[in-house]
Design a protein around this nucleic acid. Structure first.
Length: 580
RNA sequence: UGGGGCGUCGUCAAGUGGUAAGACACAGGAUUUUGGUUCCUGCAUUCGGAGGUUCGAAUCCUCCCGCCCCAGCCA
């Protein structure tokens, strides 16, 4: 028997704690060695040029989670050094998403663009140290001079300009005396380095573009490699966690900080998230939006935070997911089934149950009086008795789900069929006595049934058992609704893996959205507010769409299906018959 | 064929010289007024491969194989 305490414990299920990983080990060793006086300070550094997705959630949970676990801090920092792509709208959307996920950066909201003056001073310092120079090669020449992966590059003819000349030119770059592309500031490292990043990387470029924050104050903008390490240094970041593709940039990260002799955070790289049946690159997500494959960044099919939110996902489920997938250095592809498991787990505990019929089939209870109606008591959440009960109206004409009736049922089909008796959840046993078809099409349009008044509530006093229990809605009381059923965006597990001459969009799932306009819901749903979540019994978890739903015309999104053993049985049977 | 990384169950992933955690998925079974939930049970004699060191190797050494990243004035 479950005790009150164990019930409570269950309700407050502790968030899955992330297990040990190599980053925690590094941090723990650092703390033990009293590196940084035992301080842990991380940062989440998005570029405001797109919306956050579940891959960013992994990074957010990692950075903020580490800070929390080791009593440290995590900054929110915008890496906004490319004014041609960045906007304030993205800044706002990112803040909303991080906050919604449940993380708090307090007053530590920083912008690399706020460091421009300081960064400029650092660049001057580098020039003075003879470690940077103004190059006047064209972009094409710079590319040619860089060499290839197997051949070393060659020095620019401007590489040996005097410090004075470099200083003068750099000041004039800042002053706006030159056009875009005329000059760049480069680090003077080694054009023969086997690491291409180190072949005199560009530090500053001229861009006569106004910046969403600094306006027209600058026409030269620092590059990522120069900005990021110094921003980390300025903020006193201890562990600068980024994704694997920056591994080769670490040499430059260290080079800049070493030559400038400033506080030196440690860059640590981990593998970015890949999720099956979707794409997670900004470029591809933008294409989905721009090509109209989805309705926007917050389309409930998108793996964006805003899409997941609109779909009905909870921050808790996403955080649990991030804790469960782990952190490592091996490239990997997480099965989207794990994400779905996480949201079901959360919604199962917190969501009220209701009945709604997606594809209605009319049922007339012949022995139920025309004018009679009654209310039956239904449990709101069997997982949580404190959520109480509600009344659902019953009357002579009902709707059940089309797929809950079969005229010629296969073995193991426990639902309604001619002559068979089933239970209507929380109501009565009914028996099908007749099937009415459309004379032209042959489609089943109505079922005639009888009910057993003695089974009120769902139990037969004579101990009679029934195999199936169906959800239903009283026709007279039903409220109409539109319901959107979502499925994986891509049919292919890894849409990034494309066949010759094809592109990821060829693997788009044509059935990723099915809109049902004739759904019938129990009347208690009339007052459902945007964003509220429910379990439609036997079907799945649904939420009221926050954009398109109105009090008069409800729109529900299916967050995720319930686990469906019957569907599995059907599938394996089909497979078996095909195999034979 | 330069450099930097990575290979442990179908998918993630612990493991750090003492004899392969856990989760998802999958397959059985029990309970069930949701074919839901919950609960049991099963699921890597073997860690990319081959050698070697060792009483003992997923862990150390050697060679090989495979995959990923880098030639933006993007991040």
């Amino acid at each position: 028997m479950k005790t009150e305490a164990s019930n409570n414990q269950k309700k407050n299920v502790k968030e899955a704690k992330s297990s040990s990983n190599f980053i925690k080990q590094i941090i723990e060793e650092d703390i033990k060695a009293n590196k940084n006086e035992g301080r842990v300070h991380t940062r989440f550094p998005p570029e405001p040029n797109g919306y956050l997705h579940i891959g960013h959630a992994k990074s957010i949970c990692l950075n903020f989670g580490l800070a929390k676990e080791y009593n440290g801090l995590c900054n929110l920092r915008y890496d906004d050094t490319d004014p041609s792509k960045e906007t304030i709208e993205y800044v706002e959307a990112i803040k909303e998403d991080v906050r919604w996920l449940g993380f708090e950066w307090e007053d530590r909201e920083y912008y690399a663009s706020d460091y421009f003056e300081q960064l400029f001073e650092y660049a001057v310092q580098l020039i003075k140290a003879g470690k940077a120079y103004v190059d006047s090669l064209s972009p094409e020449e710079i590319r040619e001079y860089r060499g290839t992966l197997t051949e070393s590059g060659k020095n620019s003819s401007y590489r040996e300009r005097s410090i004075q000349e470099n200083l003068d030119l750099f000041e004039r770059m800042r002053a706006g005396e030159f056009k875009d592309g005329e000059h760049v500031l480069r680090a003077k490292i080694d054009m023969a380095s086997p690491n291409i990043i180190m072949r005199d990387p560009t530090l500053y470029r001229i861009k006569h573009v106004s910046h969403y924050r600094s306006g027209d104050m600058w026409c030269i903008y620092p590059m990522y490699d120069f900005t990021h390490c110094l921003s980390d240094s300025i903020e006193g970041i201890t562990h600068s966690i980024c994704t694997l593709e920056f591994e080769i940039n670490r040499e430059l990260y260290d080079w800049v900080l070493d030559w400038l002799e400033v506080y030196h955070p440690q860059q640590i790289e981990f593998a970015r998230l890949n999720l099956s049946h979707t794409v997670l690159s900004k470029r591809k997500l933008i294409r989905l939006v721009e090509d109209g494959h989805v309705t926007g960044w917050d389309d409930p099919r998108m793996p964006t935070i805003s899409g997941l939110r609109r779909r009905g996902y909870t921050p808790e489920a996403i955080r649990n997911f991030c804790n469960r997938i782990g952190v490592a250095k091996a490239d990997s592809m997480v099965d989207i089934a794990l994400l779905e498991y996480c949201i079901r787990e959360d919604l199962n505990k917190r969501t009220p149950r209701v009945m709604g019929v997606l594809r209605p089939l009319k049922v007339v209870i012949e022995n139920y009086p025309e004018d009679k109606e009654e209310e039956l008591e239904a449990i709101n959440n069997p997982e949580d008795p404190s959520m109480g009960t509600r009344k659902v109206p019953f009357s002579r004409v009902l709707y059940i789900e089309q797929e809950d009736f079969m005229e010629d049922p296969p073995k193991k089909f426990f639902r309604l069929a001619p002559g068979r008796e089933v239970r209507l959840r929380y109501a009565f046993f009914i028996k099908c006595i007749d099937v009415i078809k459309d004379p032209d099409t042959g489609d089943i349009i109505e079922l005639r049934c009888t009910y057993d008044p003695a089974t009120r509530g769902g139990d037969a006093p004579d101990g009679r058992k029934v195999k199936g229990t169906l959800h239903w809605v009283s026709a007279k009381h039903a409220i109409p609704s539109e319901v959107r059923l979502y499925d994986h965006l891509f049919v292919k597990e890894n849409p990034n893996e494309v066949e010759e001459g094809k592109d990821f969009s060829t693997y788009l799932n044509p059935n990723s959205l099915k809109t049902l306009k004739d759904c019938k819901l129990e009347p208690s749903l009339a007052k459902a507010t945007p964003g509220s979540r429910f379990q439609f019994e036997r079907l799945g978890y649904f939420c009221v769409d926050s954009k398109d739903s109105t009090a008069k015309a409800l729109v529900f999104n299916r967050t995720v299906k319930l686990r469906d053993t019957w569907a599995k049985i059907l599938k394996s049977h089909q497979k078996n018959t095909v195999d034979k």
